[in-house]
Amino acid sequence: MTTIALQQVLHEQRSALLTAWITQVAALGDQHSVHEHALDALLRSLFDDILGILERQPTANPSLEHEESLALALRQLVGEQARHGSSASTCVNVVLTLKHLMSAQVVTATDVTLEDMLWLEQVFEQLTLLTVTAFLAIRERQITQQSLSLLELSTPVLRLWHRILLLPLVGVIDTVRARQITESLLEAIARYEARVTILDLTGVPVLDTSVAQHLMKTIDAARLLGTRVVMTGISPEGAQTLTKLGIRFADVISRATLRAGIAEALLLVGQQISPLEGKR
């Protein structure tokens, strides 16, 4: 095998390549200067790992999946970039920049063979794949985390008045959300010994049988804890659709608006909102 020439070139140009790479990567995107040192260290360790692989005997199909330290460095690098909002192409460009620098050096060297070039090509193909995979994995995790936090944000159980809870539902209600809504509502009912719960549906885009079914289960469970449920905010179209679907909410007080719902809830606990003058 004739990798000696490739090894030699890479060895001789080692520091020049590294410096050039770091400068070019810094110029690539709008890297924040604060993290320059961390980025430098990452690039250095990645550079060492990549050289380590390139200096090996060429194999037909280089697999980089078991290169723990390389994968780790790459993941860190991509993670750093993804945190600063870089796109996938920027991340891939970081790797490709090094490839361009290396090929430029290798091409000018005298006794480098085609096999050497092929090897360089193969290794960088794998590196690019790894980079994209790492980037996607990070994005995937971000999305999962965000949807989880959205889920928590979207089901606030509010204490409207003494023994009155308000549960404003906004957005699509799927199985996961329905379960969470039920859980947090039941917990709140038990904690505040609520007598009345107002379920506001103004923000629910479409009321179909599955949403209705979820709501019925929630209402049934709430009732077992001794609270009356007042539903509010069903749109005229929603009401029409529900009746056409043949869905009936038995024993549930329903009011068109949240305002009417609050008045009803207060009445149920023996309170009312009245003007100050009347009391004096």
Partner: peptide
């Protein structure tokens, strides 16, 4: 609006 709501519900079902 009502018809669109009906269609959306039907599609969802």
């Amino acid at each position: 609006r009502a018809a669109a709501y009906h269609i959306a519900t039907a599609a969802s079902e």
